[in-house]
Computed example of a mutant assay.
Amino acid sequence: MAAEVSYESVEEESDELSLMCEDDLVVYDRIGKRCQREISRGDSLLVAMEAVGFGPKVMGWVTRGKEQYGVIDSQLAELKSNTKAQGEAVVKAKALLVAGQGLYADIAKDMESVADRDVYISDAVDAEDTSAHTEVYETRGA
């Protein structure tokens, strides 16, 4: 079943989308900090493992894990950029909606004032219109 779309529902949705974008950016920052922390811990672990004499296979696992955190961190930058752009687009669209609604509200108000008048443009046919076919036209210079 389709939801009813109204000016108010679109306005509420745009507010919710803006809040969601802001919340997402906070989460991305938190994930990014976690990635940086895990990369740093991986570096420390690799140094400690090398000092103890762990083999390349185990150190490779840590290195790959560290690289994966690096990939996630680098992808977050693009995700944050896209989310920020989406949030800005929502704000811009809402501003256009509000501006358009104001424009149409003014037009509607004007139309209501026209409807309140007794006479605007009469659709009534007057005698001149009904007798036009019987009129006699004289030629010039006759």
Rank of each mutant, 00 (worst) to 15 (best):
V5S: 10
V5F: 11
E8A: 13
V10H: 04
E11S: 12
D15H: 03
S18I: 10
L19R: 13
M20T: 06
D23I: 01
V27N: 12
D29F: 15
R30P: 02
I31N: 10
G32F: 00
Q36W: 08
Q36K: 14
R41D: 10
G42V: 03
L45Q: 04
V47F: 11
E50K: 14
V52D: 15
G53M: 12
F54S: 15
G55R: 04
K57Y: 09
V58G: 00
G60A: 11
W61S: 13
T63N: 14
R64T: 11
K66E: 12
Q68R: 13
Q68A: 13
V71T: 13
V71M: 14
V71K: 14
I72A: 15
I72W: 10
D73E: 13
D73C: 04
Q75H: 15
A77F: 05
S81Y: 01
S81C: 00
N82I: 08
K84S: 06
A85N: 11
Q86C: 15
G87Y: 08
K92F: 05
V98I: 02
A99L: 05
A105M: 02
D118K: 05
V119A: 05
I121Y: 13
I121G: 09
A124H: 02
E128K: 03
D129W: 10
T130Q: 04
S131C: 11
A132Y: 05
V136Y: 02
E138C: 06
E138S: 10
R140A: 10
G141L: 03
